[in-house]
Design a protein around this nucleic acid. Sequence first.
DNA 1: ATTCGTGCAAACCGTTTGCAGTGCT
DNA 2: AGCACTGCAAACGGTTTGCACGAAT
Lengths: 129, 129
Amino acid sequence: MQRPTRQRAAIADAFASQGRPLSPQEVLEIAGAALPALGIATVYRNLKLMTEEGLLRVVTLPGGLPLYEPATHDHHHHFQCNSCRRVFDIQACPGDLKGMAPPGFLVEGHEITLYGQCKDCRSGAGPAA
Amino acid sequence: MQRPTRQRAAIADAFASQGRPLSPQEVLEIAGAALPALGIATVYRNLKLMTEEGLLRVVTLPGGLPLYEPATHDHHHHFQCNSCRRVFDIQACPGDLKGMAPPGFLVEGHEITLYGQCKDCRSGAGPAA
DNA sequence: ATTCGTGCAAACCGTTTGCAGTGCT
DNA sequence: AGCACTGCAAACGGTTTGCACGAAT
């Protein structure tokens, strides 16, 4: 079992404050603002630990680095903005994709990524980053 | 413009012979069987070139390295086997996922990955690799 | 006091690049 | 001959690990 540390808390806070998947670098920057001595190795270690504990989940999108997100929400999907590259959660799910697989293949799960323009970019406001 | 070389041919053949997305390493092994002196750098260079030319396409799946596949087929999706981890093409597409995005978001494209057991693994035959 | 977590720096691994030699035109 | 492509090896960037210090129990 692991101990509650300032670092772990800062990392958890980073996710809570952003509400979207984050890269290790982003976590370092955001959590590092609250805890300047925070090192990248600690971020990686905790991301991996928290993922194994089921607190986080890895989101790997095409052409991008792996992102991490809180595993609190249930089944959902992602939307990546073609302009600002940020990734957002989508709660909707079409369900029932079993029919898509070729005969002989057993479908156990699925993942959907939508691409397009996010609200900010579409309105010309630019990323709210 | 690029010249036709033995290496390029061997790499193209690798994709043609497998009919599924391949990792750079797999390409090296398969094409390297026909052309032993083939180096990994050449594989990477050609994969990148062929991708820029539109001959190949990059497929990035969660938890995996980037894969490459021939860009000949039109819009399609992927199926990854939870047992052997191999990736297969799926021609089906549910289409019309625009309704899934939150208000204010513009959907321009989508990508779907199914997970489960492939034909080989399900039948107990094991990967035909 | 003991044990686990952190920070730093070196190690790693997949990918890219520089350079000299080879093959294609 | 001229130039692109290859192979090797060094360089790179993100991620992981070893080790000694600091924090939590």
